[in-house]
Amino acid sequence: MNDMPEDGGGVVKKFLYVNRKAPYGTIYAQESLEVVLIGAAFEQDVSLAFLDDGVFQLVKGQNTDDIGVKNFSPTYRALGDFEVTKLFVEKESLAERGLTEDDLMEIMYEDEDDDWEEKPSITFVNKSELAAIMADQDVILSF
């Protein structure tokens, strides 16, 4: 980057990144992830939501060899290193697409407040729970 992140003057806001599109076919998912990674430097309270076709972003075993675009899915598993540890996946979106929780990548983080114990980053929520999470945010960026 050619500019240093500016801090928010100590302000910590709740940021939710809403991912609703499939990982390939459009660039939204990849450029959303770029915002999340840069945003991590700002020490805000960050969550990610995956719904609609966005749940496909977390499917394991992605292989893009035949479409000639970068497979950026391993980056999701590195989010914990950036202290991005709250990933909410909408159950209805999974079910509508014939997916189960087992179809998704295992994404873990080390909890520094609990003796660095490894914990799952993904929480499965239903529509109404996700609505409550959204209502609780200060800033929502939807991609």
Binding site: M1, N2, D3, M4, P5, E6, G8, V11, K13, F15, E34, V35, I38, G39, A41, F42, Q44, D138, V139, I140, L141, S142
Partner: peptide, 19 residues
């Protein structure tokens, strides 16, 4: 032209971020 940090900073500094 500047970095994505400017987007996050806009979210922090603004009362409303409208997409």
């Amino acid at each position: 032209i500047s970095g994505l940090g400017q987007l996050i900073e806009a979210g922090v500094q603004s009362d409303r971020l409208v997409t």
